[in-house]
Computed example of a mutant assay.
Amino acid sequence: MSRLLDSFAVMFGREPAKPTPAQQTDAAKALFQFKREPEQVKKRKQFIKEEKTHFKPGNRWRIRRWISIVLVNLLFVLSYQFDIQVVEGALTASRFVGFHMADLNSALQVMLAYKEVVINLVIGTSTVLIVWWLFGGRSFCSWVCPYHLLGELGEMLHLKLAARGWAKDHQLHRGTRTVLYVVFAALAVVTGYTVFETINPVGILSRAFTYGISLAVLWVAVLLAVEVFYSRRFWCRYMCPIGMTYGVVGAVSPVHVRYNAEACLHEGECRRVCMVPHVLSMTKFGWNEDVKQEIGADCTRCGMCVEVCPTGALKFDIKGLGKLL
């Protein structure tokens, strides 16, 4: 339970901290001492050198995620354009073969604004909650959200520009997202209006794809420009309350990424590619509380760390079933 609460604290903005000896298991302490032996340090450095020379990470999980995002959003478009009524609405609120579905954060905003519990929203959110609890973490973000795909492309461009000195990543405090979550909720109560939905790029893009482009798309373009030139993953890391909502829901999901410290080289490649690198703090040398740990609630389940890990220290896992794919 303490590890779960710590995971929430990190997601809400607290910086990860190196565990004290009292927080580490005996097995973790023994492994740490073993890896500190001069011979083991020498071997690890040699393995890292060989890995950087010979290991070539693939793009399986990225390709799978991009296909998933495109197909889910395309389903809304095709259903509307051909009037087949499989999926109606947008990602924020929809009906799937007549059954109500509602984004958790959007539904909360509506109920706070109107100050009543709408039964259709309760039904819709219950279904969505179960689905994203099963998949775990912030998997909605990396497997369904259309802005996430644009943000990932923007991040690639940002890294290329930054390498040439044409852009710089200005990091903000991650607690900003938590503060904004409270602010948007309070605005909904006070104004009786879902203020967040007017700037929510998920809803803006989902509606634009299906019903046509509006001026609101300019706001999405501004966000992308900020991410490309000023702050890497600005919206997802520091602003968006949606991911935090799904992070809470999926914190104890049966599907998770599992870390095995025994196999880790601690070279940090996983943190370099991670969209939310604070969740991988335990991969730093001596930072693991136990030999095997689940990645925290803020994990997007994107699979990037799994892809770049040469030793299999990070793997998708289903509780009770073992390794996934």
Results as ranks from 00 to 15, higher is better:
6 D>C: 08
10 V>I: 15
11 M>Q: 12
18 K>D: 00
25 T>G: 11
33 Q>D: 12
34 F>W: 10
39 E>H: 08
39 E>A: 13
41 V>S: 05
43 K>D: 06
46 Q>T: 11
51 E>I: 06
51 E>C: 11
53 T>R: 15
57 P>R: 05
57 P>C: 01
61 W>H: 13
68 S>P: 09
70 V>F: 14
73 N>V: 04
74 L>V: 02
77 V>L: 09
78 L>Q: 02
80 Y>V: 08
81 Q>Y: 12
81 Q>H: 14
88 E>F: 01
88 E>Y: 07
91 L>R: 06
96 F>H: 05
97 V>K: 02
100 H>Q: 14
100 H>P: 14
100 H>C: 02
102 A>E: 13
106 S>D: 13
106 S>W: 15
107 A>K: 07
110 V>T: 12
111 M>F: 03
120 N>T: 14
127 T>G: 15
127 T>C: 11
129 L>P: 01
130 I>D: 06
134 L>Y: 11
134 L>I: 15
134 L>T: 09
137 G>F: 10
140 F>R: 15
141 C>E: 13
146 P>R: 05
146 P>N: 04
147 Y>Q: 09
148 H>M: 03
151 G>Q: 12
158 H>G: 05
160 K>G: 00
162 A>M: 12
162 A>G: 01
165 G>Q: 02
166 W>A: 12
167 A>S: 15
169 D>L: 00
174 R>S: 10
179 V>C: 05
180 L>S: 10
183 V>D: 10
184 F>A: 06
184 F>G: 06
185 A>C: 13
185 A>I: 03
187 L>D: 00
189 V>Y: 14
191 T>M: 11
191 T>Q: 09
195 V>E: 00
196 F>L: 07
197 E>G: 00
200 N>A: 08
200 N>R: 09
204 I>A: 02
205 L>A: 09
211 Y>C: 06
215 L>P: 01
215 L>E: 11
219 W>G: 04
220 V>T: 08
227 E>Y: 01
227 E>I: 01
227 E>V: 02
233 R>L: 07
239 M>H: 07
240 C>H: 03
243 G>K: 06
243 G>T: 08
245 T>K: 00
248 V>C: 08
249 V>F: 05
253 S>E: 10
254 P>Y: 06
255 V>W: 00
260 N>K: 04
263 A>H: 12
264 C>G: 08
268 G>R: 03
271 R>H: 00
272 R>Q: 14
273 V>C: 04
276 V>E: 14
278 H>A: 15
278 H>N: 14
284 K>P: 02
285 F>P: 06
292 K>L: 07
295 I>C: 12
300 T>N: 11
302 C>L: 06
303 G>I: 04
303 G>D: 03
304 M>I: 00
